[in-house]
């Protein structure tokens, strides 16, 4: 089993994700360079957080045109596991692997803080080790995390149980205050219909060690590892 972490110019959580996989979860992990056309036979591709190409245009929009993304798309269509974290989620939306788009946070400020998410769907390769309704404490750090989709799309993703995580309070209640960035349906994590491509705004790699204030992010990596072994 091998993980691949893609490096785009401007990625800045590439090393963090690599560190978590390699040092915390002791997994074989390799970097994948955006200019190449080689997925190096990995079993799970992770698009890390950051500001790919500076995000001067729409977040993630240029990275979606990187040479490697052709392979990532094909890999996803073949059923390969793809996880997009933060900027990676934005890129998955731009790639069309996930529906919808990201707007600026409702209050128009960058938000870096620990928040809570509630597991809505625990039947995915990324969440099957969690209980349905489990609350996870994980950090966010983004400017464009306000998920948006047309009413038809929202209906569709709800019908297909594509919402994997929702922003909630510590007790699991959904409310305006807990939905810090103003996302439609409090969506924090979204999976594709086929169930192999997950995008999430919170950073599980920043919540995989007690020292960093939470270990709740581990469950996502542990789910993937269990699924692949």
């Amino acid at each position: 089993m091998k993980f691949g972490v893609v490096i785009f110019p401007g990625s800045n959580c590439d090393y963090d994700t690599y560190y978590a996989l390699k040092n915390v979860f002791k997994q074989k992990t390799t970097f994948l360079w955006h200019k190449e056309h080689d997925l190096k036979n990995v079993d799970c591709v992770i698009l890390p957080g950051g500001f790919s190409y500076g995000d001067y245009l729409r977040s993630g929009s240029i990275a979606a045109f990187s040479p490697l993304m052709q392979e990532v798309k094909e890999f996803a269509l073949r059923g390969g596991l793809v996880l997009g974290i933060c900027n990676g989620f934005q890129i998955l939306l731009e790639l069309g692997l996930l529906p919808g788009a990201m707007l600026r946070n409702e209050k128009l400020k960058f938000l870096c803080q620990f928040i809570h998410i509630r597991v809505e769907n625990n039947k995915t390769p990324f969440s099957h080790q969690a209980k349905k309704g489990q609350i996870l404490k994980v950090p966010i750090a983004h400017f464009d995390g306000n998920y948006f989709a047309s009413p038809e799309t929202i209906l569709e993703i709800k019908k297909n149980s594509q919402i994997v995580f929702r922003y909630s309070d510590a007790k699991g209640q959904l409310n305006e205050e807990a939905n810090v960035n103003g996302s439609a349906e409090s969506i924090a994590g979204l999976i594709n219909k086929a169930g192999n491509v997950l995008g999430m705004m919170p950073h599980p790699e920043r919540a995989s060690e007690v020292l960093l204030g939470s270990e709740d992010g581990r469950i996502i990596f542990e789910s993937i590892i269990a699924k692949l072994s």
């Binding site: 963090d16 960058f110 938000l111 204030g213």
Partner: peptide, 28 residues
């Protein structure tokens, strides 16, 4: 103020801003 700053990237931040001093673990 500090919520606008990414203070957790690089996975070293052991104390959140607001403590008497910032604390960053040295990996390994």
């Amino acid at each position: 103020v500090y919520r606008q700053y990414d203070h957790t990237v690089q996975v070293n931040t052991a104390f959140l801003p607001g403590a008497d001093a910032s604390l960053l673990r040295i990996k390994n």
